[in-house]
Design a protein around this nucleic acid. Structure first.
Length: 257
DNA sequence: AATGCTCTCAACCGCACTCAT
DNA sequence: AATGAGTGCGGTTGAGAGCAT
């Protein structure tokens, strides 16, 4: 246990430079080893914080902008089915994160709840069935739902360095499990293959934009060139060496400039 | 123009789970 | 089997933007 949660651990909003740095290290080491990335990157953030930033903001496959009516319908549908299983719902909406959906639900459903209160007939304004009124966390239906966690692989899980043989053999079983569960779940609108295909297509469409394009709905995907970076990866024993060897500033200039 | 309110969303926290040792 | 580290998830909070008065 690390009691030395030193005061130098940064919190709060991320700076652009931190973002660039994180993207670089995630593309280098994959989006699994967050504690390691946090250490090696010199970001002074916790691994959790790094993961969250990546998953909710920096991941190339993320959609920006408002939910489409279709997505709204899906959220309603899956929430009525699964309750507050945000990450699970998010897997059904490519490009959307659990956080995003959670926020969306809170604001929109709270609004609807208020409206329906004013309309004096609770839940009557909801388009969906029984449990659709379960915007409240105390909802017995939701809370009593069994944790039938079919471990699906989330869309924002790039797998990163795991795709490279020997990079983290321990987790092969986990990946196998994800794959299996995906195939077992047939009610999905999208298969994981389709999701990944979508992301690939987006990347192609987007071209090789070197920096974030604030006017684009989809975040650019080729911030970094994976293939050229993968060759850096060797073994755990070489990690410290790697971090000191890495010439990061040059790359960050390229991105920020 | 100033103020207050509402909405949105990024980020944190705590707990639970998985896996390696 | 027990334990600790790492990771994922859901709930919550707070800052900033936008809107109404």
């Amino acid at each position: 246990m690390r009691h030395v949660e030193d005061e130098s651990i940064r919190k709060g909003p991320w700076t652009e430079h931190e973002d660039v740095q994180l993207v670089f290290y995630v593309n280098t080491f994959g989006d699994r080893r967050w504690d390691f990335i946090a250490k090696v990157s010199g970001l002074n953030r916790t691994g959790k914080s790094c993961r969250l930033r990546w998953v909710n903001y920096l991941h190339p496959g993320l959609k920006r902008g408002r939910m489409t009516p279709h997505e709204e319908r899906l959220v309603l549908e899956y929430h009525s089915k699964w309750g507050n299983r945000w990450s699970r719902i998010a897997r059904k909406l490519p490009g959307r994160t659990d956080n995003e959906i959670k926020n969306y639900w809170r604001t929109h459903m709270r609004k609807k709840a208020q409206e329906s209160k004013r309309g004096s007939s609770p839940s009557s304004s909801f388009s969906n069935s029984s449990s659709s009124s379960s915007f409240c966390t105390n909802d017995p239906i939701v809370d009593s739902m069994p944790m039938t966690e079919t471990k699906e692989r989330s869309f924002y899980d790039t797998g990163g360095i795991e795709m490279v043989p020997n990079s983290r053999p321990k987790n092969n079983t986990t990946l196998m499990k994800y794959a299996k569960d995906d195939s077992e779940e047939h009610e999905g609108i999208y298969s994981m293959d389709e999701i990944w295909k979508d992301i690939d297509l987006l990347e192609i469409d987007d071209g090789m934009k070197p920096v974030f394009d604030p006017y684009s709905e989809i975040m650019p995907s080729h911030i970094w060139d994976y293939s050229s970076i993968n060759s850096f990866w060797t073994t755990d024993s070489g990690q410290e060496e790697f971090s000191t060897y890495m010439a990061f500033p040059a790359t960050s200039e390229r991105l920020l400039g």
